[in-house]
Design a protein around this nucleic acid. Sequence first.
DNA 1: AATGAATGAGGATTCATTCAT
DNA 2: GATGAATGAATCCTCATTCAT
Lengths: 190, 190, 190, 190
Amino acid sequence: MPKLGMEPIRRDALVKATISEIGRTGSLGVTVAQIARRAGMSTALAHHYFGGKDRIFLAAMRHILTLYSASVRGALIGSVDPRERLERIVRASFEPGNFRAEVIGAWLTFYVQAQTVPDAERLLHVYQRRLRSNLMHELRALTDDPAPLADLIGALIDGLYIRAALGQGATGKDAADTVLDVLDRMLGPK
Amino acid sequence: MPKLGMEPIRRDALVKATISEIGRTGSLGVTVAQIARRAGMSTALAHHYFGGKDRIFLAAMRHILTLYSASVRGALIGSVDPRERLERIVRASFEPGNFRAEVIGAWLTFYVQAQTVPDAERLLHVYQRRLRSNLMHELRALTDDPAPLADLIGALIDGLYIRAALGQGATGKDAADTVLDVLDRMLGPK
Amino acid sequence: MPKLGMEPIRRDALVKATISEIGRTGSLGVTVAQIARRAGMSTALAHHYFGGKDRIFLAAMRHILTLYSASVRGALIGSVDPRERLERIVRASFEPGNFRAEVIGAWLTFYVQAQTVPDAERLLHVYQRRLRSNLMHELRALTDDPAPLADLIGALIDGLYIRAALGQGATGKDAADTVLDVLDRMLGPK
Amino acid sequence: MPKLGMEPIRRDALVKATISEIGRTGSLGVTVAQIARRAGMSTALAHHYFGGKDRIFLAAMRHILTLYSASVRGALIGSVDPRERLERIVRASFEPGNFRAEVIGAWLTFYVQAQTVPDAERLLHVYQRRLRSNLMHELRALTDDPAPLADLIGALIDGLYIRAALGQGATGKDAADTVLDVLDRMLGPK
DNA sequence: AATGAATGAGGATTCATTCAT
DNA sequence: GATGAATGAATCCTCATTCAT
């Protein structure tokens, strides 16, 4: 059974299992045993590859953020118009890949973890700074005072995510429309 | 004047200790022992009064929501103008009593808990429905289609809260100003 | 079953159980479960009272050293002659209470632990310094250069202990006689 | 010249790595993984060559004792005078090769292991019997009752070793001088 | 010959909860 | 009403050992 080069496969399986389990149970109470079982291996192996529960969680968080960044970056390809680019950023945030029950559940949980675990906090800040910087870059072409608007959009996205985590939020499309509507209104009368 | 038994005093102390501890550590990892110690009693007594950890958490959550509702209700007294009432609701959400690091930390944690514990979810819905109903009531006088706007405001408030939980959000006043600014813009030019 | 004032009783039972188990198995591989079982309680309680395995071991070590010190101190009462006091110190080291298979086994194990655990090392040094100081005090009356002799006696006692740990050493009396014989010879021709 | 297979090279590397690691950490807590890593191979190979952790430890112990015996035997070559031969035996015990922090640490640890593992105990007895026999052989020419003296010297050597393990013992030369001084005094005025 | 892969067994530790007093 | 005492159950983590390649 043992083949060579299992490490990346196992790590990947663990990361995905972690997101699934956190999303499913909606809490950090997820145990390494649960994750390992879902990933189809022993807890010992999970520890072997990651070195500890925190590191597994962190890798899962990093995975989500990486996917998110990639989807934003991908969405921007081939677009130069600021308004259009803003729309693409926002829509990417709510596209099915990112805006999925289990991912949102994990996301919210990471928010909580970021209050305690320094590495998690750092990671979250990286994401927030990147999103803010993306927004600012486009907003500068559309308004004199882009900072407050960037912060507003960021907070609104987070708010819509958090509500989605409770299963009563709107669909991804509706959420994106809401953000874009606010954006246009705030940018001033057409 | 009826002499109070110890029960309400103890329960109150436990609820406050719970909020403090959750806010301080920023997680549900808080133990009954920590809570009991901070409340100045034994864990056995904590169980005696509440029957279990979940019930203690729930009571703490209920306490926060009750305080919040009370502050909103109080803020509305003596005001009849819809726009002014909206402002008072929003400002109440960010007033120092509610918008305090420790309370926000607890709030966020309860959000996570609401994903798993049905009672917590129910409680959170009650608050959200009440806030929404409050907003709707006033918005109806100002716009034809109040529902999306009420949802937007609710999500934005949550988003600003969550960011505050990470210690990088704005002050309560700034947050309230942001929400009100959005509100006015969305309501369209007067 | 639960009565008041169990703490000292439990702590004492755990300390004695630890010494027994270490002596019996002759290794630090002793588990908290073994100790707790022998002391007649759950592992959880053992942790509750001591806070961790290291602390249990340390308490056991402290217990042995305390007993040893007490037996030396007791032996010295009512004696003023230096040579006689030296003899009493030495004989106390090998008296049945201290020079018992299980105690010696534990002693040796602590020696090993002292190589790694700073607290254990500190404790051992305290004992060695005290023994050395006791010996020096008497030797000063008998020789001009007491230091080397004190060190020699100390090392010899340790050596006889270690051999006893392997079950092939002499009896306590023989061991004491050996040390005293060396002492007299080193103090010069009769 | 016969070309060596890998086996003896690997075994040798493992034995040396074991002594290093035990000496460094001062405990049997050393893991097979640590030993294998330091020896530059996988844990699987370590098991392949030795069949188990105990066997690795035993081989390391045997190695130390073999070196010790060899150094004593070597020191005796070309000397016929009993007193001189005794001195050479003693000095060999404390020569840099044997009296090295890492070796002493391992030595002490083996002493502990000898309390539990029968093979280790047997090995230690072989060494002690051999040392005793060496001492006795020379002492017979110098005294009527050599046995107690041989035991005394053996115990003293062990005692000086054990103190060295704690890092507060004297240098090898001082230790040897101490033993020889005792020896001469016990043999009586020339 | 050599190793990455994998795990079962076990250990320390924590904690909510119960109970006798 | 209040608490010290006590524990079962669970969790993270480690490690010797085995196995397929």
